[in-house]
């Protein structure tokens, strides 16, 4: 026998289930209980940066959009800073009113999700290599046993995307585009369309982070 390593073990994940809305976005479940609700609107009038909308669907292996998925996003501000003590980048500064996090459910009728936020700046990656602007996504739902992590990149950042260290880790070139949202400038606020495909043709690249 040797000494024991006294690490604890991570708690096992379980599906968020069909009624995840009750706990995380009760208004979508159909009732009002909390004074403060967490929402899909990340930016207010004081937030620095370009206003954007992100809209899309979460699609299963049969091509059917999920109407009961919950998504969260986590992002840096327009300066490329995360609002967190471990972000010690020397460039840029924290935008105090901007947490950089939001959550929403796909709509029970349209199956669309939507976030209103600002476009993040570049964040320094490992070994000093800048990461292209991106937004971190986390998706849970009935039938998803453990939350799925992915990233959304921006179609109008081609040069930065081309040298992004994470996109370049994706061995199969055609799969990289599953992480790039297309910008639509036809409305008053730019809309990035980002569908997440859980399985099959065009399956989104998910990360073990």
């Amino acid at each position: 026998m040797v000494q024991s390593l006294d690490y604890l073990k991570e708690t096992a994940s379980q599906t968020a289930g069909p009624y995840v809305h009750i706990g995380l976005i009760p208004k979508q479940a159909g009732f009002d209980i909390f004074e403060t609700n967490f929402t899909n609107i990340l930016a207010d009038e004081n937030t620095c940066g370009e206003r954007i909308i992100i809209e899309g669907r979460v699609i299963d292996g049969t091509g059917t959009p999920l109407r009961d998925a919950l998504l969260e996003i986590w992002q840096a501000n327009a300066d490329g800073r995360y609002n967190h003590e471990l972000d010690r980048q020397k460039s840029g500064k924290v935008d105090e009113g901007f947490r950089g996090w939001g959550r929403t459910g796909t709509d029970f009728d349209t199956a669309l999700y939507r976030f209103e936020t600002i476009k993040p700046g570049r964040v320094s990656g490992r070994n000093g290599m800048d990461m292209a602007p991106h937004i971190n996504f986390w998706i849970v739902a009935r039938g998803i046993n453990i939350g799925l992590n992915t990233r959304m990149y921006f179609s109008d950042e081609q040069d930065a995307n081309a040298i992004d260290p994470v996109l370049n880790l994706i061995e199969q070139q055609p799969r990289r585009k599953t992480l790039i949202a297309n910008r639509d400038d036809t409305g008053p606020i730019p809309v990035y369309r980002f569908d997440i495909v859980l399985q099959g043709d065009g399956e989104t690249v998910f990360f073990d982070i």
Partner: peptide, 23 residues
């Protein structure tokens, strides 16, 4: 879970600021 699970492997990422920070 059958139709809602990825068929491709998850791509393993070393932690960057995007993963080690949070709300």
């Amino acid at each position: 879970s059958v139709a809602r699970s990825p068929r491709q492997s998850l791509l393993s990422l070393q932690g960057s600021l995007s993963e080690i920070t949070g709300p």
